[in-house]
Design a protein around this nucleic acid. Structure first.
Lengths: 121, 121
DNA sequence: ATAGGGCTTGGACCTAGGTTTAAGGTCAAG
DNA sequence: CTTGACCTTAAACCTAGGTCCAAGCCCTAT
């Protein structure tokens, strides 16, 4: 598959694919006789995985550290589980913080509303 | 308070404070006769709030939209409630997003563990 | 064979959020 | 009065994650 085809199939831009290759997030593509990049269809899954991982808050660096070493089946090792667990904890902490902040905001809103109802103080 | 003092008190760098001022995240500081920035102690709390908000995933732009207006000209009670409510909704959305993120992470971890138990297919 | 797309490269540019640096002014202590 | 710590500015630089562009090749259809 040419770069445009795989980009379309995976729903990413061609420039992004080349960017990923340049940064080592994906392996350099094989080249046809004309110099065009030639991709196996499996790369579609990988590109989707990268997007998914980014959506989960992973940096490209983190993704590369998992993906590059483990080849075509990227998400299948202890390390991936370790990284995901760490990320899970981080997201959990984020939620706790956000809830605390919301509680504070709610308190503040409540106070303001009271102020409004009894403007005299 | 001079910039170094307030920076230390708030646990941020002086360059960051100047950067915030330049970007309009905080109001321009008063200046002493020597041209030095002179800060009220309340700014410590604001700087801490900015860090907190960033920790919750808010961009500086979003933070500025609330902060700048609550600075020089005190906003009305109504407007404060409106802004806070918008913020509340944003935090709420963030929490929802984070929960979804965690759900996906848990799913992935589950799949990986299954993969581990039944190795190659 | 000529037009149009798609491909190649490198490098410039972009937003976000800062840090670092250069060149200089100020202040308090010794 | 000199030293060192602190302040001022603008501008350059940085990482992350990309996009855009120019100049030029390749392929396919008409």
């Amino acid at each position: 598959m040419k770069i445009g085809e795989i980009a379309k199939a995976a729903g990413v831009t061609t420039s992004r694919i080349r960017f990923y290759e340049k940064r080592g997030i994906i392996a350099p593509a094989a080249r046809g006789a004309n110099g065009y990049r030639d991709y196996p269809e499996e790369l579609v899954a990988l590109l989707r995985f990268i997007e998914q991982a980014q959506g989960l808050g992973f940096t490209l660096r983190e993704i590369a550290s998992v993906e590059v070493r483990s080849g075509p089946h990227p998400i299948s090792c202890d390390e991936a589980i370790r990284l995901l667990s760490a990320k899970r904890d981080a997201v959990d902490a984020l939620i706790a913080e956000a809830k605390e902040r919301m509680r504070k905001i709610d308190t503040l809103i409540g106070e303001l509303r009271e102020n409004q109802e009894s403007p005299k103080e």
